[in-house]
Design a binder for these strands. Structure first.
Length: 278
DNA sequence: AAGAATCCCAACCGCTGTCAT
DNA sequence: TATGACAGCGGTTGGGATTCT
């Protein structure tokens, strides 16, 4: 590339740190009138003693009128988990699927909430696979120890037990593969992570997976990349089918995939049935 | 009530990619 | 092709807010 990388704001005379409401007013007022144009030129034109980069960040992460503030909804949280399992730390790409949310906000939410949540559940937050070291696998081992009991509990068992059961089943299957799984939407339950392709390749054709309708709609309208990614991941043709309502009342879109091979009885009999009954 | 510990998030930093010349 | 200018991205940090002891 050309010149050496530029530093953030080299000029010591330029202000750094938190923005005042007066500075915000100046920035918003200028952009409302003239648009931001060149960020480098903007501070002088707007009467701000800041560097252009600082102005751009303040605008894009905080002052933009279309920014949605406040807590992330469960649906947004699910979307982030789903997309992160596919895209990794591509915060701007993930933000593109969450209208009104900035990449910075999503990144912060991930680092302060979701990452910890996955670790507590015994998953590696980067690969979304069960962690293999002995201490982090403890939840899985404890769950496995109780698997027999859980299998025969009543159908109205609570969600946490259902969750543990699903994780145990996933642990039994996913640890046999090196590829990463993807997340699965279970309505108002915690997310569950689908086994990697090597497991799915053993399934019968036309099994259903559920992913949030918002993602499917978004990708159909604006971005085929995610569907392509899913298709490549499972070596399948991914297509949207009509949305359905699960028994928690949440509407989900579904997509079907074609795979060949021998059905995996554990998966078919227990795991998939469990999910589709949620 | 007060100090310590932890959480949270806006802002900063350094790097890369793209475009114009 | 080489260079410079700039926008954008992802990782990190500082410090205020909140919770714990």
């Amino acid at each position: 590339m050309g010149r050496p990388p530029p530093s953030f704001c080299h000029d010591d005379n330029l202000k750094k740190g938190p923005w005042t409401s007066e500075e915000d007013d100046k920035l918003v007022g200028y952009i409302d009138k003239h648009g931001h144009g060149s960020w480098r030129a903007l501070p002088k034109l707007a009467g701000l003693n800041r560097c252009g980069k600082s102005c751009r960040l303040r605008w894009t992460n905080y002052l933009r009128p279309d920014i949605k503030r406040g807590k992330f909804s469960p649906e947004e949280e699910q979307t982030i988990l789903n997309l992160h399992s596919i895209l990794g730390n591509k915060w701007s790409a993930i933000a593109g699927h969450l209208p009104g949310r900035t990449d910075n906000e999503i990144k912060n939410f991930w680092n302060t909430h979701l990452k910890k949540k996955l670790i507590q559940m015994g998953f590696d937050p980067m690969t979304h696979l069960p962690r293999t070291d002995i201490f982090s696998s403890l939840p899985h081992l404890l769950a496995l120890a109780n698997l027999g009991e859980m299998m025969y509990r009543s159908p109205w068992e609570d969600h946490s037990v259902q969750m543990a059961k699903l994780q145990c089943l996933q642990y039994l299957t996913a640890t046999t593969s090196t590829s990463s799984p993807t997340t699965l939407n279970l309505g108002n339950m915690e997310p569950v992570f689908l086994p990697p392709p090597s497991i799915l390749e053993q399934q019968q054709p036309q099994q259903l997976q559920m992913i949030p309708a918002s993602i499917i709609n978004e990708t159909n309208d604006h971005d085929d990349q995610l569907l392509d990614t899913l298709g490549n991941r499972y070596n399948t043709q991914v297509q949207q089918t009509p949305s359905l309502m699960n028994n928690t009342g949440d509407v989900c879109s579904t997509f079907s995939y074609d795979v060949c091979g021998t059905p995996n009885s554990l998966w078919n009999d227990l795991f998939l049935d469990d999910i589709l009954l949620q």
